[in-house]
Design a protein around this nucleic acid. Structure first.
Lengths: 173, 173, 173, 173
DNA sequence: GATGAATGAGAGTTCATTCAT
DNA sequence: TATGAATGAACTCTCATTCAT
């Protein structure tokens, strides 16, 4: 990948994330990336394919967080790790989550949260721990995590560590 | 308010809600409302003032849900009512919440959830009930409600009543 | 029809006729018509619908030439009139024929010559006059007229009247 | 000439012939030819020089048809050969004639028909055969041949042989 | 109050062409 | 010879907005 192509992706990601997809013009992307507008189309074909590229790149980065949970067998550890997930994202990955959520709202797409694949794993953990209604308990935990994520993405949580500790205590003590 | 003005507001609300603000053109609004494009500007001045009108109208409708909680003194009832809030919205009001959240994401506005005014009320309730960390407990409850709200708005919850019952049981038993 | 809409049609007709369809930009049309470029799209939707409008208008004008032949019963008069047709067009109508032929070549469309409807009429005339192979004779006459038309449109015929007289003599003496 | 250069010429000829000059982009030519876009400019300098190359190559091919007529002395044979000319072209040469005519219309160039050089020859033939107005007779024959050519190029003539026979009979019996 | 003509700015995209490799 | 990155100008078309009626 050439430097200019990289610049386009980065500039577009930032602008999409702060202004949204349709409010970001290709000319502004080109300007921010320091390239000619035509280059965007030479590399990506069209604006929405550029978005796809960005999205795919981000998904790729998030995948690294999954493996940590997938191979965990201790139910308590599964819960701990799924709760911690929103808090351990790097600033860059958090930024990508923001973009993902923002676009999900803009495009009416179901935000395919990166948590989803772990649903069954968590349900099983609750089952092993003997809770009353493991399916519902999982649902609710995921709603909670989504809510925290949204707050986190918009920097509405002041002391994230305290929240994390509180939750872990709530679910694992 | 003339019928045509009403039509504009309704058409715009629907289009903003499904396509977003900047992806909705005034010409499409006029077409859907069955009026000339110029009339939009005659009545509202510009596109974003039209949005403001819609938003204000919606807020007004939501206010009716507040009063029910504001004057509640029983702490357990406060909790019950705040938890039930997302589930008792009419379809129309739910639709407006969708719009509100969608726009909050599009505009980078802090989604001034209609729950917020009740924060202190809920915190006090938790205090009265003698929980360990009332502030944090309130935070978490609100994150959870936000998460449920988001899921509700996107029709991702199948059996809403079951979720409601589960939560009330969790917090009030 | 407003004056500006009229101007657009006229300007476009001239430019299409001299430069062809795809080599004529909407911005040049707007400039020549003295209107904003957007107005073209407000009135016609897109560039090719503008072309359709021009074409339809021209066809309409050419229709007036038809009726003269349609009701002719004398076979010799039919021949005389069909031969004279290319020579009696007004300058404006000739210009439109140029456009029509030019576009037929550009678009790979079969140039639906305005002569076609008279094919059977002419064949019948030849039959009445007792020629050997009326169908073929008609075909050839039409090829000839097409050739003359093409030459006429490109101003390659110096003394048109002489050609007309020669042909009438050839076919009717 | 390298294979790639050949491919460019062939691809361009086909595309110009079916879509016209200005509606054919160099990128499409490169794609069809299976070469990089830059190579077109390396070989031909610019798009219109590529066209010139194609045109010149085609003219060269058509020249072979001329010699047959140039050295003919029998006036009846001259007429026969000139009439037969449009019908004896190979499919490939016919395709080139199509391109030539199409471009003549697109560029407002006088279609330098390959017949022209024979004008005087034909006029002389008519003179020798003692027709009344040899100049005019030649003009008309050429108009007719142009008309037939146009029909032939657009595949509008079903039974070409019959037309040929009919004409030869008309002019030589 | 309501329309429809009109606009200028800017949208996404394609163009012929250049140039370093 | 051949490529592919890169460009700036031009393309068709849409935008929010104004204004005379």
């Amino acid at each position: 990948m050439t430097e200019k192509k990289r610049n386009i992706i980065d500039a577009a990601a930032q602008l999409f994330s702060s202004n949204g997809f349709s409010a970001t013009s290709t000319s502004k992307i080109a300007e921010k990336a320091g390239v000619s507008e035509g280059l965007i189309f030479r590399h990506f074909g069209n604006k929405s394919a550029l978005l796809d590229t960005i999205l795919a790149e981000g998904e790729q980065r998030l995948k690294s967080y999954y493996s940590d949970i997938v191979f965990e067998s201790d139910p308590r550890e599964v819960l701990r790790k799924i709760i911690e997930l929103p808090f351990v994202l790097t600033a860059e990955d958090l930024e990508f989550c923001r973009l993902q959520t923002k676009l999900a709202w803009e495009m009416n797409a179901t935000n395919s949260s990166h948590l989803k694949p772990h649903f069954l794993k968590v349900e099983l953990a609750f089952k092993k721990l003997g809770v009353d209604n493991p399916k519902m308990e999982t649902d609710v935990l995921f709603y909670l995590i989504e809510g925290i994520n949204a707050a986190l993405l918009n920097a509405k949580i002041e002391d994230a560590d305290a929240v994390k500790a509180f939750l872990i205590n709530k679910y694992l003590s």
